[in-house]
Write a protein that binds this DNA or RNA. Structure first.
Lengths: 116, 116
DNA sequence: ATGTTAGTTAGCCACATGGATAACCTTTCA
DNA sequence: TGAAAGGTTATCCATGTGGCTAACTAACAT
């Protein structure tokens, strides 16, 4: 199970369109720094920074062979986020079920909009 | 479906333990600003800022009645995040299936250094 | 009418983030 | 042995973020 600080880093890593784009690219298979940088409108060092953020968040991994560093997805990465999300979603649904129950026992509460 | 900027804000809103704690609190039911602030080791204005970030990310909603502002979870909030996550997970599972297929026809490939 | 409660706004500060250049280190190859 | 390719490091800059205090407004309560 992930610690809070890991979740911090993972959520933060994904809170940026450039980085989510990199993730999408890596979904199609591993890629070098240069390949990842190619479509991006920024200089190499900036790309490197984004990659470090993704790596710190546990979303990607990299190995260096020769002068080429290759990045790939860390398959377990989204597990922590997914767990956090689904756990809360379940809890909210229980909460809203209780609310429905409560409301159905009351008269004249003229709204349905809560569930939207 | 969520726009990139919405995902940015949603992920960013959750990339902080204070804010995730607020979400957990709100999972048990709506709460006022004061109630949300009570357990937190920070001044009210700081709490307000966090709540604004959560609201900007679409994670919570609030209404003001009299002098009390009440916050509650926005049940649809995590849908966008969940969709993004599960979509990628599916994609890279396919990727790793292909990789497994490939590797099962190959010799072992020696590992290089991994960034620490 | 006055005081108290619950938020809110404004302004300040330290530090993090996302971008840029410039210079540098390795590895590869003609 | 160069020189090019592929990263990497150092430094800088503007802006954003998370915290604070002080001062203010808008309900209630007495």
């Amino acid at each position: 199970m992930l610690q809070t600080v890991d979740l911090d880093r993972a959520f933060h890593a994904l809170a940026d369109p450039t980085r989510r784009g990199m993730v999408d690219r890596l979904t199609e298979g591993p890629a070098s720094v240069k390949e990842l940088a190619a479509p991006l409108p920024m200089a190499l060092p900036s790309v490197l920074k984004h990659l470090r953020v993704l790596e710190a968040g546990g979303i990607v991994m990299s190995e260096k062979a020769g002068r080429v560093r290759t990045y790939h997805i860390e398959p377990a990465a989204l597990a922590g986020i997914e767990e956090w999300v689904t756990r809360r979603k379940a809890a909210w649904n229980r909460q809203f079920d209780r609310l429905d129950e409560y409301l159905s026992g009351q008269d004249q509460t003229p709204q349905q909009e809560t569930r939207k």
